[in-house]
Design a protein around this nucleic acid. Structure first.
Lengths: 214, 214
DNA sequence: TCGGTTCGTCAACACCGTTGACAAACGGAA
DNA sequence: TTCCGTTTGTCAACGGTGTTGACGAACCGA
């Protein structure tokens, strides 16, 4: 009964995902999404309470493609590493969500599956409950946290991103060596490579700490 | 020569800090700041290139009370630990503003002083430039990132915060042991203690990794 | 055929950051 | 003293954002 819908939450989310993939997350606006759907922007409010609600749905969609299935012949350490990298990648695919929502765990479908997988691997690594929890919290703090701060820059186009890094580096290189000797000598090496590489560095450091502590 | 200025970067930043403290960082806009200063919003552009420039200046202001002075008889590891904990504390003091700023380093006075101190200690710990930079990036990623995601919950009153943690824990405890065995058995230990303690756990893990790698 | 319901459209509202033209207020030079 | 150049705040506007309420088209059941 009533007018037949041309839109649906699913179609909207799918289009939003395409739009983010094509133009970057910063171009995902109610108006651009309306245009991509061929409808008036305000029509979206028939399916989502507000733009945050929409962002959540899009974020959930991205979280669904983290591969949490156990793999044969994979060490617990490699598995934990892979899980965290996958979580980060999924979160960076929806920056706005990564920056806001991760203050609290959603405790819903995809996130539960991920959490189970992470604890499964930690247990396999020989960590008992209280220690495993501390390791879990540490890994999540690093993975989700770093995704949150990398989200903004990850939304940029590669060329712009590199230009931004270069600008930061230039500022550090230009420092007075008398006042900032340590920073100055480290400056040429700052913000080389990708944020993903820096995250993996940090993750490996933490994993090394975990192994040393076990 | 020229018309005498009624504004200055310092007065603008001070007013912005008051405004953030009173209304929260999400209400810090060019227009509201102009009103608080009793001037036209566009006047701010005589002192800041854009709103990002302003945000960095305000954010840097909050870093001023991190103690970065070197201490006698303090190991590099203890010093690095203290510096990171101090940085986190400063950022959690203005949670919402931290959310605005954390995307990019401010590269201004207080942040430079902090960065210099951190590199000074890492160098003292025997790390050479490229390795020190990787350690620096890892520590910052963890410290700033975890502050970003802890910011929201840190703003709550202690009682509310504990109630929130208990709610999360209850959700995990209520899970079906058949589908989520690993999470279920870890559940009673989740979100015990403070976010600060969990951060220090993670930091110690990373420091242990650093030592192991050195 | 009629009423009720759904849902996309349209026009507006209240914000946001930012810019360019303009005027007021000064110091120095003529 | 007059005039000029410079600084600096004011003003009006532009294009962008999310959001809302009135409206009408399109359908179903009675």
């Amino acid at each position: 009964m009533g007018r037949p819908p041309t839109l649906s939450r699913e179609r909207i989310v799918d289009t939003a995902v395409e739009l983010v993939a094509r133009d970057g997350a910063e171009h995902l606006t109610v108006r651009s999404l309306g245009e991509a759907l061929g409808c008036d922007p305000s029509a979206l409010y028939r399916h989502f309470r507000n733009v945050d609600d929409l962002h959540r749905a899009v974020g959930d969609h991205f979280l669904s493609d983290v591969d949490v299935a156990p793999r044969a012949r994979e060490s617990w350490r490699t598995a934990v590493r892979r899980l965290c990298i996958g979580l980060r990648a999924a979160q960076l695919r929806q920056p706005r969500l990564a920056a806001l929502v991760h203050a609290a765990p959603t405790r819903l479908g995809n996130e539960l599956a991920f959490t189970e997988a992470l604890f499964r691997e930690l247990r396999r690594g020989g960590f008992r409950a209280p220690t495993a929890v501390r390791a879990y919290h540490s890994l999540i703090e690093l993975t989700v946290g770093s995704a949150a701060i990398d989200a903004a820059i990850a939304g940029l186009a590669p060329a712009e991103r590199e230009a931004e890094y270069q600008r930061w580096r230039a500022d550090y290189v230009a420092l007075d060596p008398a006042r900032f000797p340590a920073v100055r000598s480290a400056a040429p090496h700052l913000y080389r490579g990708s944020a993903d590489e820096r995250f993996e560095d940090a993750l490996d450091l933490m994993l090394a700490g975990l192994v040393a502590r076990r």
